[in-house]
Design a protein around this nucleic acid. Structure first.
Lengths: 151, 151
DNA sequence: CTACAAGTTCAAGTACGCTTGAAGTCAAGG
DNA sequence: CCTTGACTTCAAGCGTACTTGAACTTGTAG
């Protein structure tokens, strides 16, 4: 299979995997979930335009912020389908996260305070203490990504 | 079954569930995992001392911070087995989280900056961007997700 | 005594995010 | 020609954290 990008400007799944750090199996999985897509070479092999790398980067970042793949898919669907996304498209998309990040940071700050003031002093009681407010589901998800693997 | 705590000072699983907001099935699961334990009434029903509520609160908090149940179990095992934990025991335990929370907050701050500066400006590239380089991601995918430790 | 809520165990199921394995294709090098 | 390596699909598996269901027991109220 070699390195078709030298001549065609399209990347194989192996190249994309190496460049993004995301396993090929994960890339296929993302495609199945509709998060990315690919053209096919005559052989049936996937060929990716370079722009897929930014899309993948967005996915990886969003996951670390705490979004699920479904949520990420929703966000990505807001990109213009007719043309290549501009940097403005990307920044508009990513600006939605900011408040989410801030919320999560705020919760962590509350937890931190609760650790010393609440557990430390002995008042800790779930039915009275609101520190562990389970408001943001995705936030807690952020702490538990796909735990597996990878020797 | 009524409310045995009125006379015995011990709580049923239903009472603990209501007071902690944690489902009875989850409490049984935690017991199976060794995170909490219970005495048994003659009937075979679980009876919990009040102190279990703080232990459960600790578990819930720790989960929000991002620890896995295994990690939480390790932490809990550091409590004195011979006597009831003091507030000092609890605060010593919880102080370990603080740095973890700080790390996670720092990562979120970095991601926030990365959103505007990296994705927004168009430089976003997983193989070059410091915010989510493959080494960190591979490492964080392991057991404890969620934190870019270097950087 | 009967009903019924609340408890018990154990096995299996769920959601998420992938990974792994089996079986096969394709193109280039020796 | 044959091997090798990168790719393909599809199905099944895995780890975390639980939930759900089946089948059964207990304890109290009426």
């Amino acid at each position: 299979m070699g390195l078709p990008s030298r001549t065609t400007d399209l990347l194989t799944i192996g190249e994309v995997s190496r460049r993004s750090g995301v396993a090929a199996s994960a890339l296929r999985f993302y495609e199945q979930r509709g998060l990315i897509d690919s053209e096919r070479a005559g052989s049936g092999h996937r060929r990716y335009p370079r722009s897929v790398l930014r899309r993948i980067a967005f996915i990886v970042f969003a996951q670390r912020v705490g979004l699920t793949l479904d949520e990420i898919g929703e966000e990505l669907s807001k990109l213009p389908p007719d043309r290549a996304p501009t940097r403005h498209d990307w920044s508009r998309l990513s600006s939605r996260w900011t408040s989410r990040i801030d919320q999560r940071i705020a919760e962590l700050e509350r937890l931190k305070v609760g650790l010393t003031e609440c557990i430390g002093c002995g008042c800790l009681s779930l039915d009275r203490c609101q520190l562990a407010n389970p408001g943001d589901r995705a936030a807690s998800r952020g702490a538990r990504c796909g735990v597996i693997r990878r020797a």
